[in-house]
Design a protein around this nucleic acid. Structure first.
Length: 571
RNA sequence: GGACACGUGGCCCAGCUGGAUAAGGCGGCGGCCUCCUAAGCCGCAGAUCGCGGGUUCGAAUCCUGCCGUGUCCGCCA
C-alpha cells in the first residue's frame, strides 16, 4: 500500500535514526501485513535487534511509542504493524488516483509466421502481449503494439511455392492421411491456405520430386533474403490472406495492432548489410571455413553454444541478424522495449541481447512464456493434436449461450448471443492470463470453459452488480464520504488502495497475472461489500455506500478492460 | 552431455525479491434467494511447499547436490 508507505516512511526513518539504526535496508523489509487484523504494512524488527544488540520485541515497542500520535503503529511479537485509518483510507480512495506512467513503450508480440491459423498455444503470446499493452496504457504509458511480420525465409517460401505449384487436387492428394478441415472454417483464409502449406510440407518429405522441390524453395528463400523485389511480392501475396485470417481471430479476442513491420524492410533498406559490416570489425568476430561469419559470445560470458552466426557463407543474413537491425530501429522510437516470446526463443534472444550490448545499444525487456500442452502431449498440427483458437472461441460462446439461456428467461436471443460472446471470449483470455507465464500448463476444456470461481465471468459479474445499482439509482453519486465504515467496506477500500501498486508491479516486472489476481480480489471484496452494505434500502439511496459502489464500479471496469475482458452491464 | 525454466492439498494455481498461522479456485460435504442479478455468499474436510544438504535470528522463497517435467543447444525461422 504505497499511499500508506508514503506517510510512514519519514517519521519511521527519524524514529529509527534516533535509536541509532544505520542505513535504509529496512525499506525492503517494510511490506504488506500477513493478516488483516495486524494492519496494512508491517516492519519486522529482527534485523535491528542484531545491529543494536537488543531484543526485537523491545525495539518494536519503543518504535511504536516513538511514533504514537503520528501514525497508527502497534508492536506485536517483534513486528511493528501500521494501520491506515479507516476514514482517511476511504477519503483517499474515493478521491481517486492519478496515473503515473509517462514513458513511450513499444511492445512487440505475437509476430507468428503467417502460415496457418492460431492454436491455443500460439495465442498465449497474443493474449499476454495484448494484456501488457492494455496494462501499460492503464498505467499511463504511451504504447505502440507492433507485429513483426516474417515475410521472408523458409516458412513463407514453402507456402509461396505451394500456392504457385499445387492445385486443389494436388493438395487434397497430399493430405489424404490428415484430418479434413472443419467445414465450419471453409472460406476463412488462414484455415484454407494452411492446407497448401501442409501439403508442401508433406511433399518435401515424401514426394519423388522432393529434391527438385527443395531446390526451388531454396531458390525462392535465397532470393528473398537478398531482397529480390519480385519474390518478396510473391511471398506477400502468399501470406497476406493467411495473416488476414489470423488477425480476424485475434480481433475476436479484442487484440489489435498499431503497426506491422516487415522483416524484409531491413534487408531492402540496407541496414542489415551495414550492420554486418560493423560486426566484421569487432574483436569477437570470427569466420568459418566456408566463409560464414559469427561473433564469439563466449568471450563475453556466454555459456553453452558460444558462436553466434549472423551471416551465411553465401553472404546472406540470418533471422537473428535481421532481428538485431529491427531492434536498433525500434529503439529509435521508444523509451522502453518489450518483447513477448516463447521459451523456445531464449537462446536466440540472449544472443540478440548480447550483440546489442556489444553494439552499445540497450537490451530489450523480454517476457518469456512456457508452452501450453494438451493432455495428449505437445500440440502438433501434423498429428491433428491441436485446439484451434477459432474452435475454442466458438465452443466457449455456445457453452456460455446455454448457461445464459438457463439463467435469464427475460432477454432476447440477440442479447443472449451478445452476452455469450463476451463471456466466452473473456473466459478464454482470463484463463490464460491468470497463470504465471513461466509455467507451462496443460489445456483443459473444463478449465477454459469454467465460468465460476477464478474466472472472467466472476469479475464481470461483480461489475454487472455495480452497474445494476447504478441503473437503479439513475444519477451520479453525491460527494459524500462514509462515516461509519463496516469491515466489508474497509476491506474493499484496502483492495482498491493497492490497485495502482499492482498495476505498477505487473507492468514493471512483466507479470500480468498479478493484475488478474488483483481483479479477482477486487471482485471478491466488492461481493462482500454488496452483501453487507446495501446501496438501496427500501428505495432510499444510502449515499455513502453508493459513492463507494460507484468508485468500485469504475475501477472494476478499467481493470476488466485492461485484461481484455469485456465489461458487460448486464449478464 | 551442456544451458535455461518449472515442481506447492485429489486436481489447477498465488505467494509481491527471506519474515508472524502457506492464500485462492475446482472437485467433495453442509448451509443461504418474501432483501440492490445465487455466474454469488457462508461454513467443514484436505499441505512433511519434489528429495537431501547449506546460509540465516528466521527459508516455499537464497546457495548447492540429486530426482522428475519442459524448452533450447541449425550457416532454420
Amino acid at each position: 500500500m504505497q499511499i500508506l508507505r508514503e506517510i510512514i516512511e519519514q517519521p519511521l526513518e527519524s524514529a529509527l535514526a534516533d535509536m541509532g539504526v544505520e542505513g535504509d535496508f529496512w525499506k525492503q523489509a517494510l511490506g504488506p501485513s500477513r493478516e488483516r487484523d495486524q494492519g496494512d504494512l508491517s516492519l519486522p524488527c529482527f534485523p535491528f535487534a542484531k545491529q543494536l544488540g537488543r531484543n526485537p520485541a523491545e525495539i518494536a515497542n519503543e518504535l511504536a511509542t516513538a511514533l504514537s500520535g503520528v501514525v497508527d503503529a502497534e508492536a506485536a511479537g517483534g513486528y511493528l504493524n501500521f494501520k491506515a485509518n479507516r476514514d482517511w483510507l476511504a477519503q483517499r480512495v474515493l478521491s481517486g488516483f492519478d496515473t503515473v506512467g509517462n514513458k513511450s513503450v513499444l511492445i512487440e508480440h505475437t509476430s507468428a509466421n503467417p502460415n496457418g491459423p492460431f492454436h491455443v498455444g500460439r495465442a498465449r503470446n497474443a493474449i499476454l502481449g495484448d494484456t501488457m499493452v492494455r496494462l501499460h496504457r492503464l498505467h499511463g504509458n504511451e504504447v505502440r503494439a507492433e507485429y513483426y511480420v516474417d515475410d521472408m525465409g523458409k516458412q513463407v517460401g514453402v507456402l509461396a511455392w505451394a500456392l504457385q505449384n499445387l492445385s486443389e487436387a494436388d493438395v487434397a492428394d497430399a493430405l489424404v492421411d490428415m484430418d479434413d478441415m472443419n467445414p465450419k472454417w471453409k472460406g476463412k483464409s488462414d484455415h484454407e491456405t494452411v492446407r497448401w502449406y501442409q501439403a508442401a510440407q508433406a511433399l518435401r518429405q515424401d514426394s519423388i520430386d522432393k529434391d527438385a522441390i527443395e531446390d526451388e524453395i531454396s531458390r525462392l528463400v535465397h532470393a528473398s533474403e537478398h531482397g529480390d523485389d519480385a519474390v518478396l511480392a510473391q511471398f506477400e501475396e502468399a501470406y497476406s490472406p493467411v495473416l488476414e485470417g489470423m488477425l480476424e481471430t485475434l480481433s475476436r479476442l479484442g487484440i489489435e495492432f498499431d503497426t506491422f513491420t516487415k522483416e524484409s524492410k531491413f534487408v531492402v533498406d540496407g541496414t542489415v548489410s551495414a550492420l554486418m559490416e560493423r560486426f566484421e570489425s569487432m574483436e569477437i568476430h570470427g569466420m568459418a571455413e566456408n566463409g560464414a561469419h559469427f561473433l564469439d559470445l563466449g568471450q563475453r560470458g556466454m555459456k553453452g553454444k558460444t558462436e553466434f552466426f549472423y551471416r551465411r557463407g553465401d553472404g546472406s543474413s540470418l533471422y537473428a541478424t535481421r532481428d538485431i537491425a529491427y531492434h536498433m530501429w525500434k529503439w529509435e522510437q521508444c523509451d522502453e522495449l518489450i518483447n513477448i516470446l516463447g521459451e523456445d526463443h531464449k537462446l536466440q534472444s540472449k544472443q540478440v541481447g548480447m550483440t546489442l550490448s556489444e553494439l552499445g545499444e540497450k537490451v530489450p525487456e523480454v517476457m518469456f512464456y512456457a508452452f501450453i500442452k494438451l493432455p495428449e502431449g505437445k500440440m502438433s498440427t501434423r498429428k491433428g493434436n491441436v485446439v484451434f483458437m477459432d474452435d475454442l472461441l466458438d465452443e466457449a460462446q455456445s457453452h456460455a449461450a446455454a448457461i445464459v439461456r438457463e439463467l435469464r428467461s427475460d432477454i432476447s436471443d440477440e442479447e443472449v448471443a451478445t452476452i455469450a460472446e463476451a463471456v466466452g471470449v473473456s473466459a478464454v483470455r482470463f484463463n490464460i492470463i491468470k497463470v504465471n507465464p513461466d509455467k507451462g500448463f496443460t489445456f483443459s476444456w473444463d478449465e477454459a470453459l469454467s465460468f465460476e470461481g477464478e474466472s472472467a465471468p466472476f469479475v464481470m459479474y461483480a461489475h454487472t452488480r455495480a452497474c445494476s445499482i447504478n441503473r437503479k439509482v439513475g444519477r451520479a453519486p453525491q460527494n459524500v464520504f462514509p462515516t461509519d465504515i463496516p469491515d466489508a467496506m474497509h476491506e474493499l477500500m484496502r483492495v482498491m488502495a493497492c490497485n495502482r501498486d499492482i498495476i505498477a508491479l505487473a507492468t514493471g516486472e512483466n507479470r500480468p497475472h498479478l493484475f488478474a489476481t488483483q481483479m479477482l480480489d477486487l471482485a471478491t471484496a466488492y461481493n462482500a461489500f454488496y452483501r453487507d452494505c446495501h446501496v438501496l434500502m427500501d428505495g432510499v439511496v444510502e449515499e455513502a455506500n453508493y459513492a463507494v459502489s460507484e468508485a468500485a464500479r469504475h475501477m472494476l471496469r478499467s481493470g476488466i478492460e485492461a485484461l481484455g475482458v469485456i465489461p458487460l452491464e448486464s449478464m
